[in-house]
Simulated assay, not measured.
Amino acid sequence: MIKVGIVGGTGYTGVELLRLLAQHPKVELKAITSRKEAGMPVSEMFPNLRGRVNLKFADPSEAPLKHCDVVFFATPNGIAMQQTRELLDSGVRVIDLAADFRIKDVGVWEKWYGMEHACPDLIEEAVYGLPEMNREKVKTARLVANPGCYPTAAQLGFLPLIEAGVVDVEHLIADCKSGVSGAGRKAEVHALFAEASDNFKAYGVAGHRHLPEIKQGLSLMAGKQAGLTFVPHLTPLIRGIHATLYARLTKDVDLQALFEKRYESEHFVDVMPAGSHPETRSVRSANFCRIAVHRQQEGDMVVVLSVIDNLVKGASGQAVQNMNIMFRLDEAMGLEQIPLLP
């Protein structure tokens, strides 16, 4: 059994990790930390876990994290980098669901996240945990930087086009919409029911923290600097991301065949039939990315529609997928949940 610890188990990604790991056949949950809620039974905060998770939240200083095989950080940005080195030195593998190790350029990271990085030397070692790009590196990683939600949906949508070299990578557009759970489990006015319900708005148009992460991934795919216009939007949904991606074709290609071939062996990427329009509800609570590719009026513009659940394939589910790869388990183990409808 894999002994697992979770740091920061009180947020939406934390409870999603608990939901998935509690039913994983090869996992033993050893510790869940929260300074504020130390001593509280997990099921008291999250009644959906009653009878499945019998642990209490523990103070991080007292939790047996060094006795775990892997520790997940489901914490705000800036927390994992304070504790990761000590865990790695103790032989514990780390999967960070925040952004502490995603961006390789430390200066860029510090600019966008507004703080000094505590262990910049570990950034180079960290493996970016998008399995469809870096599966072989994840297998041997000690430290995995789990991708963000918008970056997951956008990169999986653009990946076949950029790898095949059939689009202009200098003028890509990602028009993305997210449910309110993407902002985390905290009290903020914009996420209040009366503010977010029956409303739709763009935000972060001048610059969003996920922009450098997406551009980094697209540039690695292309082998040169990619240009990206990224505009996120907040929608009155709890879960879900819908990414509408635009690129100009530079070569004539059978787009449907290109996407089907690229993802034919990927368990968690579903290329839908030609002409499809994937819906966020089709991936709710499941670790799937569903993709459809369109070419409008046989012109030179390709439109890719990519949908994920921001808390699963966009966060905790992908983290469990990475854990499975790191410990040489079936990649889909514990992640076969059917999406919820209605």
Results as ranks from 00 to 15, higher is better:
Trp112Gln: 04
Met115Ser: 12
Gln296Asp: 12
Met133Tyr: 14
Leu249Glu: 07
Cys289Gln: 12
Gly334Glu: 06
Ala183Ser: 10
Gly9Met: 01
Glu260Cys: 04
Leu172Tyr: 08
Gly11Leu: 01
Val283Pro: 10
Met272Ala: 04
His117Trp: 09
Met333Pro: 00
Leu311Arg: 04
Thr140Ser: 15
Ala319Asp: 04
Ala315Trp: 04
Ala141Trp: 09
Leu172Arg: 08
Glu86Lys: 11
Ala274Asp: 07
His233Tyr: 13
Gly299His: 02
Glu195Asn: 14
Arg328Met: 05
Ile103Asp: 04
Gly299Trp: 01
Gln318Gly: 08
Tyr128Val: 05
Ala154Phe: 00
Leu55Gln: 05
Ile162Gly: 03
Glu331Trp: 02
Gly157Met: 10
Asp100Pro: 05
Leu29Gly: 05
Val253Met: 09
Gly129Tyr: 03
Lys201Tyr: 08
Leu311Gln: 13
Val15Met: 04
Ala164Ser: 12
Arg239Met: 09
Lys66Thr: 12
Arg284Asp: 14
Gln216Asn: 09
His233Thr: 05
Gly275Arg: 02
Val138Met: 15
Gln297Asp: 15
Val304Leu: 05
Gln318Pro: 00
Arg248Trp: 09
Val180Ser: 12
Arg85Ile: 01
Val138Glu: 07
Ile123Gln: 02
Lys56Phe: 06
Leu255Val: 07
Tyr12Lys: 02
Ala226Gln: 06
His294Leu: 13
Gln82Pro: 00
His24Gly: 02
Ile238Phe: 15
Val231Asn: 03
Val42Cys: 07
Gly114Cys: 03
Asn54Ser: 13
Ala74Gly: 12
Leu21Arg: 01
Val53Gln: 00
Ala243Gln: 07
Leu311Ser: 04
Ala145Phe: 11
Thr235Ala: 15
Lys104Phe: 11
Pro236Tyr: 05
Asp59Trp: 06
Glu37Cys: 08
Val53His: 01
Lys104Leu: 14
Ala319Glu: 06
Ser219Asp: 08
Leu20Thr: 02
Ala141Asp: 08
Pro339Trp: 12
Gly165Leu: 07
His210Trp: 08
Ala196Glu: 04
Gln23Arg: 14
Thr235Leu: 12
Asn77Asp: 15
Leu156Met: 13
Leu29Asp: 05
Arg102His: 06
Pro236Arg: 07
Gly5Val: 02
Ala118Ile: 03
Asp300Met: 02
Val302Glu: 00
Ser276Gly: 00
Gly9Val: 01
Ser34Trp: 03
Cys119Ala: 15
Arg328Pro: 00
Ala315Cys: 14
Val108Ser: 13
Ser306Gln: 05
Val127Asp: 01
Val71Lys: 03
Glu62Leu: 09
Phe259Val: 06
Ile2Val: 13
Ala154Ile: 15
Cys289Ile: 10
Arg290Leu: 11
Ile6His: 00
Asn310Glu: 15
Phe327His: 06
Arg209Ala: 15
Thr250Ala: 09
Ala206Leu: 14
Thr84Pro: 01
His267Phe: 06
